[in-house]
């Protein structure tokens, strides 16, 4: 029996972007306030999952032609790379650096290497969640 997904599909087209934007906001909020790579990653996976429910696996693959296992690996490269960076300066592993920088138009920016680490976490979380969902939910032909 084919069910009609019109409402779900129409809603998804709007909600997907809202959730994505919110996940990016949460990701950047993560330093001093609740949020960060992990939650941001979960939200993004939630958005992709919604897409998957409203349409099907093939649609998701067409929109995001990514091997999620490689995404995990890239995320790990970011996370480990941030840690290894401190080895070069003879500081304990995972020591972070930060500083203020003046950028025209945007003004004073507070930059922190922890963001790069968090980006790694974000990628790992999205990658792992999506690999799990694809493995369980997808029919491997």
């Amino acid at each position: 029996m084919k069910t009609s997904n019109v409402i779900l599909q129409s809603m998804t087209k709007v909600l997907l972007f809202l959730i994505m934007i919110f996940s990016i906001y949460i990701f950047f909020a993560g330093h001093y306030t609740p949020g960060g790579g992990f939650v941001g990653g979960l939200l993004t996976s939630g958005a992709i999952l919604l897409l998957l429910l409203a349409y099907d696996l093939q649609t998701v693959r067409n929109i995001l032609p990514v091997n999620f296992l490689y995404m995990v690996a890239v995320g790990l490269v970011f996370a480990i790379g941030t840690g290894v960076g401190s080895l070069i300066f003879d500081k304990p592993f995972l020591t972070h650096a930060f500083g203020d920088i003046h950028v025209p138009i945007l003004g004073e920016l507070h930059l922190h290497t922890a963001t790069l680490f968090d980006l790694g976490v974000y990628l790992v979380v999205v990658g792992v969640t999506m690999s799990i969902i694809q493995t369980i939910g997808g029919d491997d032909e």
Partner: peptide, 24 residues
């Protein structure tokens, strides 16, 4: 090479290797 970090190397080397192996 940084010496204060020496004791983490037996953890770090396999970790980096694992990531490389995923790509290979």
């Amino acid at each position: 090479m940084a010496m204060i970090n020496f004791l983490i190397l037996p953890i770090l080397v396999p970790l980096i290797t694992a990531v490389i192996l995923i790509f290979l």
